[in-house]
Nucleic acid binder design. Sequence first.
RNA 1: GGGCCGUUAGCUCAGCUGGCAGAGCAGCAGACUCUUAAUCUGCGGGUCGCAGGUUCGAUGCCUGCACGGCUCACCA
Length: 483
Amino acid sequence: MRREKLARLQAEGKDPFAVVTYKQTEHSTQIKEAFETYEGKDVSIAGRMMSFRDIGKASFSDLQDRDGRIQVYANADHLGLEDYARFKTYDMGDIIGVEGKVFKTRRGEISVEARKITLLAKALEPLPEKFHGLKDPETRYRRRYLDLVMNREVMDTFRKRTKIISSIRDYLDEREYIEVETPVLSTIASGAAARPFTTKSNALNLHLHLRIATELYLKRCIVGGMERVYDMGKNFRNEGIDIRHNPEFTMIELYQAYADYHDMMELCENLLSNAAMKACGATKVSYQGTELEFAAPWRRLTMIDAVKTYGGPDFSAVKTDEEARELATKLGLTEDLKKKLKDCTKGDILNAAFEKFAEKNLIQPTFIMDYPTDISPLTKQKPGDPTMTERFEAFVYGREIANAYSELNDPIVQLDRFTQQAKERELGDDEAYMFDEDFVSSLEVGMPPTGGMGIGIDRIVMFLTDAYSIRDVILFPTMKPQE
RNA sequence: GGGCCGUUAGCUCAGCUGGCAGAGCAGCAGACUCUUAAUCUGCGGGUCGCAGGUUCGAUGCCUGCACGGCUCACCA
C-alpha cells in the first residue's frame, strides 16, 4: 500500500527520495519554550509524522524532531484543496517538512499552521503502536532506530551519554591532557586480565589481538615525555555477556606524570561529580531507587579494613600464605578462589574475602585502597610492604567503576612481574597478563613516577542515566544474528 | 555453560481442560474545519518462532533446536 503510494508520487514527478535538502529553521522545543517570541511568525520545521487526527477538511498531526514533538495544523483553506488532499495520503512515519505560522489552538496547544508541506521521505514500514509503543527488548536492541523513534527516554539517555563524555574530555583538556589514539590491533593484548578477541592480518600474515586495555601504550607516551595523556575508546574482551558486560565497551585510561594514586582519587571524584553536574544538574542522582552522592570527598578504605568492616577476618594479623590458606579453609572461601588453594597467596585470599564480604556493600562511591601485589602486576609496591601496592578501585552500588595505580616504573621489577604472570599462564590461567618485552624496554628508557586510572564509561553512564542494563547505554549492543 | 521465563496480526496483548485464530492500536473505504490515545460507520489482515512426536484433532501436551529476557557461575 505504501509502496503503491510511493510509486504514484514518483509517477507524478513528486518522488520524495529525489529531495536532497530542506531548510529547517527551528526545532520543536525552541518554539515551545519561547512561544511568545515565535507567535505569529513563520517557521520551517521538519521531522517524522507520529500521529494524524483527521477531522475532514482540516487535521492535526504531531511532528517529531530531534528534540520532541510539535503539533501541525493543516487545512484546505491554507494549503489549497489539491495540496491538502495529497497531504492526507501521507502516512504515519513519513518524514515531512512544514512551513507555516506559529499559533496556539483553542485548547492551548502550541502548533504550526501549515502553509506548505513537503514530503521528504516515505516510510514504507508502519511504526509500532502509538500508545503502547515498542516494548520487545529484542527488537529494541536489534532495531535501535525504532526504539529511538518510539521511546524518547532512549534519546535522552544517549544525549546524556554524549554530555558525560564531553564533560570528561573538557575537564582533562583544561588540565592540559593530550588525547591520543593507541592501537586497537596488536600482537600482544596486555594491560588487563581478560581473554582477547583474535583476528588475522592478510597483509602481514599475522595473528593479531584486539586490545583489552590501552595501558601499556599510554605509559610509552609517558616515557616519551607527554606527561599527561588519555585514550578514550573501545576495548574488547572475549568474556561473558550480561547486564554489566558487553564484549565491546568504552573505557578511558589516563596517565599523569609526577602524580600518584592519591592524585588519581581526587581526579576520579572531580571527573565524576563534574559529569553528574553536566548531565544531571546535580551531584546526587537516583539509581534504581537508591540515592548516590558523587560529590567529593568519597569514602576511603583499605582493602584489609573493608574486609574487617563487613564481617570478614582481620588480614592485618595474617603473616604468611600458609596462615591465609588455613583461614580460607576455615571461612569456606575455597569455592570463591580462582586457583587451587595450594597455589593461592595471602593476596589472592584477601581479594576473595573482599569480593565475598565487602564488595556488594559499597553502595555510595568508595575508594578501596591498597591491593595485593600478586593481583596487581603493573603497580608500584607500597613503601615498607612489598606484598601490597598503591592501587585503588572505585566502587559504586557494589560495582567497580575505576581502577588506578601509582604506576610501576622499575623495569627490573616489571620484568619479574611479567615472568610471574607467564608462569600463571603456563599453569592454565588464560587471563594472566601477556608478556610485553618492548614495554619493559620502554621502562628502561625511564618513566617518571606516574599515576594512572581507567574508568568504565558505560558503567558511569548507567549510574547517571539510571540504566538497569549496559545494553541501555550502548546504542547497538552485541547480539547473535537472528538466523 | 546451568536454571527459570518468553516467542500468537506491523505494534501491545488475550486465547479456559486439546475442538473453526481474537481484541485494541496501526492499515483500507467513507463522514466530520480546534483535535491531541480525536470521534463515528464499514472492511481487510495470521507459516500461532522452527523441526519432529503424541492424538480423530495441537497455538495449547511431549522432545529437540533457534533467538531473546532474567538469574547463577566467570569476567570488568
